[in-house]
Design a protein around this nucleic acid. Structure first.
Lengths: 247, 247
DNA sequence: CGCGCTGTTGAAACTTGTCAAAGTTTGTGG
DNA sequence: CCACAAACTTTGACAAGTTTCAACAGCGCG
């Protein structure tokens, strides 16, 4: 089966890694740990996996064993229901965690797919639980990370439930911009790693609607778009559009 | 300020409670604990609070200190953004937890409001963290509960992003039905605790659209609705409608 | 008994989706 | 390195679904 084949192939690409000299430690799990504690975490995060664009990090239905921290690259997660409908539930970049949805049923509930060549750190979950019984700060931070995911999801629900197409796209671009900025990249100019269709799926819109919204933003001088290259020309304008009352 | 007044008033309505003789223990945090561990949890869950319909359990912006388990009654949570838009993010019933969103920033990120007279158990979060360092099963179960909330949110995102009005309402009713059933109530006949407007807010629809969908379901013999009293006549029909491919 | 709140229904307006066609980029194999 | 195919993007015209606005009905509470 190609699922297993892909997974097996990935297992070869394993590299030793360490949080203590990772430049994402301020974004990722190690926040607030002292050097001693960080050393313990190093032991926990034993393996790194490289993925090529299009590879699955995991698939819905596979047993859950580890969560993953993105070291580099870009991912999407998507869920699928029986009738064939699917939706992108999130895009993850460096320092962000993947796989939290699998804890509840011990089976992954979504697919995680690399949108560009990427690396992740695998964190065996049972080890994380036992270490977080010793390291209070790690325990607390992990709870915060899970909670933050819930808050983020509420934000997406708000977006899907109350915003119109252009507001959604503006919110999406501003969010991306802010996340690139937090990682030291330009907040104004970046390459989208995902297609119009994937953006649309995330935003609850058809790809044509996304494309039209991009064109409209360009006409209005809010941004310069060329295919997947985006330059934000008027952040305030986008923000105003995003929060523009509906009625 | 009426916010503080309401909160202060609630603080009076405190009653001693115990998980070990709570008939919700199979739905709530205590799952899987042995009698010894359950005893420790009893000490943790020290207070019960009674709320009247319309009372706020907590408000967005208030400092986060405890999570709450619903003992009886019915709640909604909603988020609000600056421009005045708001959205119901969930409805909670007996055995379900409230307040998980507050962990990330130590401030509640939404409002929790009783939709009928209700009782909750307050669980001081720092105590929960320290107890869950001792009781592995509690730790693990708590992680599962948080993860389940993430999975649930993904389901709502799916609903909001890909389903049309009638599909959304069908999904909502089936979900309610199943939760009532799990609590020993009739899955086929129940009273809605929320208004059309609140349902609409949760489902990303206007109240008129919700109302029309109810009328349509009634015309088609799927259910009998009278105001807030609902009787499901054809579960399979609702399920089929819910999963009916869009195109 | 009447007032206010909630729910229902109709018609028109608006937003987004659907279908279709053509342009553009990317990747592959010769 | 070119040629061609496949995948992705843009744009237009029309259709469908949902919201908006408005009027009215029903229920519950004082």
């Amino acid at each position: 089966m190609s699922t297993d084949a892909a997974t097996a192939r990935l297992a070869f690409e394993v590299v030793k890694t360490a949080c203590s000299n990772c430049n994402l430690r301020e974004l990722c799990l190690p926040i607030g740990l002292d050097p001693d504690e960080l050393k313990k975490l190093d032991e926990l995060v034993s393996t790194r996996r490289r993925l090529k664009r299009g590879d699955f990090l995991y698939r819905a239905g596979q047993p859950f064993e580890s969560i993953y921290a993105v070291r580099s690259g870009f991912f999407k997660t998507d869920v699928m229901i029986e009738d064939g409908r699917d939706q992108v539930t999130g895009f993850q970049m460096a320092g962000e965690l993947l796989g939290l949805d699998g804890i509840s049923s011990e089976v992954h509930s979504c697919n995680a797919i690399a949108l560009e060549d990427s690396e992740v750190c695998a964190i065996p979950f049972s080890h994380l639980e036992s270490l977080s019984r010793q390291v209070h700060m790690l325990q607390h931070h992990f709870h915060k990370v899970m909670s933050r995911e819930i808050v983020r999801d509420h934000g997406v629900m708000m977006l899907l439930g109350t915003m119109r197409a252009e507001e959604r796209l503006a919110a999406f671009l501003l969010n991306l911009s802010q996340r690139f900025k937090a990682r030291g990249y330009s907040p104004a100019e970046f390459n989208l790693r995902m297609s119009r269709d994937e953006i649309g799926s995330y935003l609850g819109l058809k790809l044509e609607t996304v494309s039209r919204a991009f064109s409209r933003f360009q006409e209005e001088g809010l941004l310069a778009v060329n295919q997947r290259k985006v330059r934000i020309l008027n952040t305030a304008g986008l923000r105003k559009l995003m929060t523009h009352q509906r009625s």
